[in-house]
Nucleic acid binder design. Structure first.
Lengths: 218, 218
DNA sequence: CGGCATCCTCTTTGATACTG
DNA sequence: CAGTATCAAAGAGGATGCCG
């Protein structure tokens, strides 16, 4: 088993002893964006992982206290996995990884697979509610395999899976331009040139995009 | 070579493609705490790494743009490595790793090696200057292989290698209790019980330790 | 010395097939 | 559905050699 330790009395090394193995943080990503999940759902959200590796990792993560599993009673009647509090405490780390990785999202390779819910981390890292006293807004994002919703809640911006009845704005197109617009790397004209379709007003967008039409930062 | 990619159009996965290999983030830690370094200095700061792996990683990191190297002219007359701006942008990530890993620093195993400068990340994550308008303070930490200095600069607290002429406070002892005290997990009596010696007043400590004597948090 | 490259062994990963 | 079993390929760890 992959219980190889750096054997260093260092907080960074200790953290990497637990979450530094290949696939581990991507499993955390799945559980964090999807909540309690079945084994097969995890497999679907982790294209490329070998099934034995997923089983190994889940066991190790359970031993190290970041994942727990239990047998759900009927009508679910299956094992469910989710994050413990200690696993949830990895959220700032994943957000920071998403923030650092976002500038490398420019050119989707043909070999790259994509799942809509992976957008949660760059989104939650980039978006802020600039006018939290106004009524809440909802933006629907249509790209990839399922719709996503961006909504303002209690002064924060949350991204989650799902659709919504009457969104203020709908974004439709490929993930590249959507991410470019919401991260501030592209203005709306540039995003449209790259195929983005915006239904509804831009007001909600202006409210949550941190540097609207701003210059890009590293 | 370790150029294995997750092939996912996801910011987290893209980041891990670049910094997810074994040892890579610890090399970043070394360069971030030590500045431009020679190959042999890196080896010393990374006990356990195989020399061929260090050479491999440095090459990969140079290719991916987080490290650069150059031949220093005499009297140094050697290759120097350091972080690019993109590499420096990993600082929040390492701080978050240090923060998440700090609760696991309780029991130093006999097999664990220790270098003083590794304390930088948990320290910088935990310490804040609560009274930035007062004159700056300096705390010297004596543990492990070299002294470290904690100092208040422009409302921030910085930890760095080195000694200082007339510190306000000197902490001397094993790294465990020092880290416990500065992270707020131990109060000063508990730290003393575990062998910590405090020279000088506690005022400077009270000023920078976020939750002085406070209850621990995950 | 400093900065690697080579060789060898062992462990981890990836791909696929199979099972209660 | 939720994994195990099997096996080939890649990566990690350790020792040592080489070259300016």
């Amino acid at each position: 088993m992959g219980v190889r330790s750096y054997q260093q009395y260092c907080a960074v090394a200790k953290a990497l002893d637990v979450i530094g193995d290949r696939w581990t943080l991507l499993i955390v990503r799945e559980l964090m964006t999807s909540g309690p999940s079945r084994y097969t759902d995890l497999l679907k959200g982790l294209p490329g992982i070998a099934t034995n590796l997923l089983a190994d990792r889940l066991r190790e993560m359970e031993k190290s206290g970041i994942v727990r599993s239990w047998a759900a009673p009927p009508p679910v009647a299956t094992t469910l996995f989710d994050l413990t509090a200690r696993g949830q405490a990895l959220r700032p780390l994943l957000e920071e990884l998403g923030r650092w990785g976002a500038p490398m999202m420019g050119v989707p390779q043909i070999s790259n697979v994509f799942r809509s819910h992976w957008l949660v981390f760059p989104f939650d890292a980039y978006l802020v509610d600039k006018t939290p006293d106004e009524p809440p807004v909802k933006i629907e994002v249509r790209t990839g395999d399922e719709p996503m919703v961006i909504e303002t809640v209690d002064g924060k911006v949350r991204t989650r899976r799902g659709a919504v009845e009457s969104p203020d704005t709908v974004l439709e197109g490929k993930p590249g331009p959507i991410l470019g617009l919401l991260s501030g790397r592209l203005d709306i004209a540039e995003a449209r040139q790259r195929g983005l379709v915006v239904h509804g007003s831009q007001k909600a967008l202006r409210r949550v995009v941190g540097n609207w039409g701003g210059a890009q930062q590293v």
